[in-house]
Design a protein around this nucleic acid. Sequence first.
DNA 1: GGATTTCGCTCGTCTCTAAGG
DNA 2: GCCTTAGAGACGAGCGAAATC
Lengths: 342, 342
Amino acid sequence: MPKKRMNREQRHATMADVAAHIGVSRQLVGLAFRNAPGVSAETATKIFSAAEEIGYQPNLAAQALRREGSKYIGVAYHTSHSSSEELLPAIYKAAEAHGFKVILSAISSRRSDQEALNEIIGHRCDGAILISSTLSVAHIKQISKALPIVSLSRRIEGVNCGVVSSEGERGVYDAVQYLASIGHQTIAYVDTSEMLDHEFRLQGYLDAIRDRKLMTRVVTMSGDYIESAGAEAAKLFIGQGGLPTAIVCSNDQVALGLAYKLQQAGIKVPDDVSIVGYDDTVASLPFLDFTTVHQDADELAQAAVKDLAERIAGNISSRKIYLTSAKLVVRSSTRSPRTSQG
Amino acid sequence: MPKKRMNREQRHATMADVAAHIGVSRQLVGLAFRNAPGVSAETATKIFSAAEEIGYQPNLAAQALRREGSKYIGVAYHTSHSSSEELLPAIYKAAEAHGFKVILSAISSRRSDQEALNEIIGHRCDGAILISSTLSVAHIKQISKALPIVSLSRRIEGVNCGVVSSEGERGVYDAVQYLASIGHQTIAYVDTSEMLDHEFRLQGYLDAIRDRKLMTRVVTMSGDYIESAGAEAAKLFIGQGGLPTAIVCSNDQVALGLAYKLQQAGIKVPDDVSIVGYDDTVASLPFLDFTTVHQDADELAQAAVKDLAERIAGNISSRKIYLTSAKLVVRSSTRSPRTSQG
DNA sequence: GGATTTCGCTCGTCTCTAAGG
DNA sequence: GCCTTAGAGACGAGCGAAATC
């Protein structure tokens, strides 16, 4: 004897409940919640206070189903990337400003990009932001036919989607120029080949070194954990004897691993060696206070959401790339090199 | 002249499309996708391959709307907590095993617990897991009337919800006992008063110190960033002269900040001072290799999801607490103290 | 007649009953 | 009995059109 319906107390309130509570039609409640014109101010207040009283919250599934667009933006991101800490809140905010809600879909070693994307499609998101996605170009190309896509932190080519990334070549270039300007002659770079878009940051290093007519010294790492990549790099620098006076890293986590390991070996930062990171995530922690290249989460998020919103509206359909600012922030992990003595 | 309907190509495929494609009824497709009995194996394969071909993905909104239960579990979590990295994938997995999908809802300085929860309610999740929620007891109490709740990493009292947390008192107790057993006499503890459930870990320290008849030395920090709390604690230890031979921290991030700052001051870990963390997040990074207390993300996630699933099924309605294992993992940040010399 | 309110159909799926091969 | 279809009524809200004051 299955009961047809839960009793009133136990189920969630609906528009009809709100309407019945104050004796108006369900549709009128709907208009009020959509801020549609045609609801008198007086009635609106009555409706909202009644909704509050009985604890009404709009059913998002019903809205998404009925609307022509779901008004959702799907965001696929890696739980293990520290940059998400800043990025996700920024995306929430930017999405809200454009009238979208956010559906997060996590990627991890146990949950593939594809699974994350399927969930986004299942929710009928109007568009998706893929953060640091490693899906193949062909695959993203195919997906982008069904759904507007923005690739964040990966400058994918050959796909008609939005591409948003910080201008790594500029940021690293500036960092190297700065180091050279305060007297550094041997400036090394720690490259992490598995990191997306690593090549642009590396290029910035190479360009600056060329312009300054210095010697390049690039250490390329491929570790899983990026902090560990920095630590491994430290071993190489120590082992090879000639320690450079400055080291630029492809990201903050690498810089942390590097600095930690160097200091453990009795090499002081910045006294013996200057270190520069990238991203301004952990670098901004007061006890580290690393010089780094700041990429602004809000700027990235706003560019991504704005482009996506326009794609959803049908105003863009070709590839478009946005490079957001990458600004050198000088803190206490860098200083002029010691004047070499005897 | 607004068009009533997008043309077939541009909208997402539905069950009806799949059915039409192979000339069966829409209902049969529904049965197949629900793995309901009454579909021949042959037909099932035809249906699934047709679905694949035309790119059909079930509309989650429609499912959630129609079903008695949405089969969603909402998870509210802080983007800035590193423990989420492991926990979220573990929750996805556990939820799937119980037939639930996961809806993530981020909490940050720009998005309150309340907003996160409203989204979860809006999706009509059947239950919610609140990770490290700082909502008031009264508030959670109220929410738990509308929705089964599990509090993860916060041992909330006075609310009829599931409570899952690692057995911090045991883990820290074991850590201190271990340090004492290898010869340490002065063992300090860094407490972070703003961290949820910090008191249980502290209690483990106090109990072990009492049992070993040693002196307590607790440094209580209240910083925003927990790595910074560790760094600040380092300053205190250095300033106060008498450095302990071992320091136990309330979590790994504190241990990292502490170790970094101590080494910067020329104090070697573990030669001069042994350090123990808690959580086994960053502690497991190879270059750190900190001794720590491991709390198992899968164990936490499974306990949380299982309890929640039973609450949803109506089998539990009172408060129930699960303490998951907290195991000391000895790595290279601890060793016997130097024998003191004149 | 303009502001306010209501009607009626619809989104895609589930679920139930009844019945056909 | 097996597998399959038909038909119909939800679920909760959106939205164009019609009705009311």
